[in-house]
Design a protein around this nucleic acid. Structure first.
Length: 307
DNA sequence: AGGTTGACCTGGACGC
DNA sequence: TGCGTCCAGGTCAACC
């Protein structure tokens, strides 16, 4: 499912539902193919931690984790905390251990919040039990999704030598300024669509929104990025940002699966102008939408409106 | 180093 | 009903 608007929708839904909950235990099924963490690291980082905030970075869902504790406990996550401690004030910069839980949904990943008695769906690879009995389940038939954790070390007064928080592989498309966008693409000989999909340049853009933004900008997907004029690049960025914002407002695109922590669908698929519309008439000029393969991805455009 | 291709997976839609 | 083919929201490692 997930490109930027879908991931944003899911992250917001998760934040509403489970922010502030504490993780009691973690079950990992048939190896969730860690992105950069072992199963042991994931279990150690999550168990006993509080979900402070859940948000999106690129196509990743990020949960900030804290564990108010002593170093002792973080080395032995199964041990009991010795201090009654103060109330959790949600102060992520405060004392204690800090970490992050990263979820990448791949093509078919889903995060579901349920009660423990709900039947476990096929292809459930992780179950995270919360202190209020609910569970976060990670379901992913195609297994392209990834789970990872980051150990940010211990905060507190000096909070020194902490590892950096996750900022994603590239620039954030909704924030980037036109000049920076032009600089990013400068000299790239790859087709503009491939550049849009390159997560180390911009992160969050996937196949749907690459095609849709190129349509809005009137640019053919296989044009070399380096050959686009400044005006075209500016048009492309504003088209991209517009399409992403509209999609977020509609809860993302539900093409064959659903989105959202409770399974509600997004509606942006009704706004697609080229994606998956091969042979259907362009809404602007009636010419049949064309499909080509670019960089191994199905690519849709209007041969009349896009140059 | 930048760019391209195939591999990784499962499931649904379609044609015969 | 069943089987083969193609297609799918995404990355990576391996090549040129």
């Amino acid at each position: 499912m997930p490109e930027l608007p879908e991931v944003e929708t899911i992250a917001r839904g998760m934040d509403e539902r489970v922010r502030g909950s504490k993780i009691i235990s973690v079950w990992l099924g048939s190896k969730p193919e860690p992105l950069q963490s072992t199963a042991e690291e994931i279990v150690a980082a999550l168990t006993g931690s509080t979900l402070e905030r859940i948000y999106r970075v690129g196509k990743h869902i990020v949960a900030d984790l804290t564990r108010r504790d002593d170093t002792e406990r973080s080395r032995h996550p199964s041990g009991r905390s010795r201090q009654p401690g103060k109330k959790s004030g949600g102060n992520w910069r405060g004392h204690g251990w800090h970490g992050q839980w990263l979820v990448h949904l791949g093509m078919t990943g889903r995060l579901v919040v349920t009660l423990p008695d709900a039947p476990v769906a096929p292809h459930t690879h992780a179950i995270v039990q919360l202190d209020d009995r609910r569970e976060i389940r990670f379901v992913d038939p195609r297994r392209f999704g990834r789970l990872a954790v980051l150990d940010l070390g211990h905060g507190g007064a000096q909070g020194a030598k902490n590892r950096a928080r996750f900022t994603g592989p590239g620039r954030e498309p909704l924030d980037i300024a036109p000049e920076a966008f032009c600089a990013l693409l400068h000299g790239r000989r790859t087709p503009i669509k491939s550049a849009l999909l390159n997560q180390s340049l911009l992160h969050g853009v996937g196949n749907i929104y690459a095609d849709e933004s190129l349509f809005r900008a009137g640019i053919r997907p296989k044009r070399q990025a380096a050959r686009l004029t400044r005006a075209e690049l500016r048009r492309l960025l504003s088209g991209l940002q517009a399409v992403l914002r509209e999609a977020i407002a509609l809860g993302g695109s539900s093409v064959s699966d659903y989105v959202g922590a409770d399974g509600e669908k997004g509606f942006f698929q009704l706004q697609h102008r080229v994606y998956l519309r091969t042979g259907e008439p362009c809404f602007v000029c009636q010419a049949p939408i064309r499909r080509i393969v670019l960089g191994g991805r199905g690519t849709h455009y209007c041969p009349h409106c896009q140059h």
